[in-house]
Amino acid sequence: MTTEAATIGLTHGGSEDTGLGHRGPESKSIVVPYGFWLFVLSDMVLFSALFASYATLVHATDGGPTTNELFDRGLVAVETVALLLSSFVCGLAMITAKRGNMVWTQAWLVATGILGAVFLGIELYEFATMVGEGAGPQRSAFLSAFFTLVGCHGLHVACGLLWLGTMMAQIWAKGFQQHIIRRLLCFSIFWHALDIIWVGIFTIVYLIGTLPA
């Protein structure tokens, strides 16, 4: 059995493990992030529904402003780079956290938060400008779908920032205990996932929306 399992790639070289659950339940350091990974994937399914409704309603402008008139690629480029760097720096924070380096972990987490706040600030500025121009969510079906999709992502980022602040306080107060590291790992999964969703948004909403008609 063991040799057979090894042949088809079910085991790590030389171990007795069949990969079929014979060792009993996994440790918490595996199970907790795996469960969180399932949540993140279900969150992506939620966003797919919002993307689908946006794609369906994007031309339903009811005579109001269209994508080409509303969106500013320069702002979106800055937002994109800010969120990408934030995700990258969050990864660096994980590397230092695993080694128990308090100063660098907190420094990278602060940088993560600042870059996330820059992203959120630009997004709120964009929303405020649009609403000020009379292009609020109540103007047309297209704008309702736009504010739902992009606003939902922005809300996730805002919650992520709150979570980030909480994690920094917990690391500061309780140190690098196992369960704190697990929470931090879950946060980093969440933060990277938000960047993945943003890739979809800046491509489908902003870039494709501002192609010359």
Binding site: L92, I189, H192
Partner: peptide
């Protein structure tokens, strides 16, 4: 099986490798 070997068998999503250079 030691705890260390145990950790090699399954990785959590987002869990990085062991060497600081290769991770970075």
């Amino acid at each position: 099986m030691t705890e260390n070997e145990d950790n090699l068998l399954d990785v959590a999503p987002g869990a990085p490798h062991n060497n600081i250079l290769s991770e970075s």
